[in-house]
Nucleic acid binder design. Structure first.
Lengths: 160, 160
DNA sequence: GTAGTGGTACTCGGATATAGGATGTCCGAGTACAATTGG
DNA sequence: CCAATTGTACTCGGACATCCTATATCCGAGTACCACTAC
């Protein structure tokens, strides 16, 4: 079970978009250059974020991406779901129905293994939904105060 | 992010092994026949469980698999880890170090995005570790009391 | 000088290759049992 | 009749194919800006 690497990229890029300020749009190429990532592939991930309404995209010159909402209103869950999709990691295929005593047991009763796995995954989702981008930003500013300023400056001079 | 289908198989098989009683070993072929699964591939999953000490394997005639511990001492976390491996789903690749202001920020400070993701995954693991096979068995017996007996009987007559 | 017009460069967006891992299969090593043979 | 021995059938265990999805790339549609032209 491995999460797409795009999730890490998307989270970092969202933070950068938040720090550069919401007005000016940032092209995918700039975001990619910041971390030395493949531009086209990062663009694909950003498109996924755009589809879910986390960022808004703007074509043409002076175009790019910018956050569609305030960092306080974007949870880690939102970003993960946008990239990975809404389906749970554990998928019950109801193999018990294939068994010799499957059919009668399947009447109405939900698979209890599935329920247990869902319970765990729900805890995971809850924890992700409890953390917003703003929370992470606050933690970063506490631990490494110079990051926001330097980031903002880098993107500003890159535009020159 | 998709969990291996082998996890579902392994969990169901562990429950069946628990119900058939710990003495007699059950071959992978019988376990597979119960759900109409590919025998060799299920065998592969069982091997993973054996490596982690969840089941013990016995070669030769009258051989097969049986639980190595009591169901109370086997958590869902144990089974998931045995099949999926111990690595976390989210892997921080420290892309910030690739950035223009990466090196200084990497000094000593852990990536806070990574920490947030780990926190969520820890909640997931905690929930999985809190549920034992015995718990799930108890729930099944409560909801569908006839399952344990019918299962035990099926495996007994299959051996004849 | 100003408004209109055509050209150009830049952006996202989706269609198209590629690689790595999960899925599925096959054969060899080892063991217990049973049949056979000799005492 | 009993013990030793040989043969056989059955099991796991790991090596070998195959398929699907994440990864990576490329080109087209659309837009804003700029230069140029005509009035």
């Amino acid at each position: 079970m491995k999460m797409s690497g795009g999730v890490e990229w998307a989270l970092h890029c969202c933070l950068n978009l938040a720090w550069t300020g919401g007005e000016q749009a940032v092209p995918a190429a700039r975001l990619a250059a910041f971390y030395d990532l493949p531009t086209a592939y990062l663009n694909k991930q950003m498109q996924a974020l755009a589809r879910e309404g986390i960022v808004s995209s703007l074509p043409g010159p002076r175009g790019g991406f910018r956050l569609a909402r305030a960092p306080e209103d974007i949870t880690l869950m939102d970003v993960v779901t946008a990239i990975e999709g809404p389906e749970p990691a554990f998928r019950c295929t109801e193999i018990r129905e294939q068994g010799p005593l499957g059919e009668p047991a399947a009447d109405g009763s939900r698979c209890l293994i599935d329920q247990a796995m869902r319970r765990a995954e729900l805890a995971w989702r809850r924890e992700l939904a409890a953390q917003t981008l703003a929370d992470v930003m606050k933690n970063v500013e506490r631990d490494v105060p110079e990051v926001p300023g330097r980031t903002r400056r880098w993107f500003a001079e890159a535009r020159a």
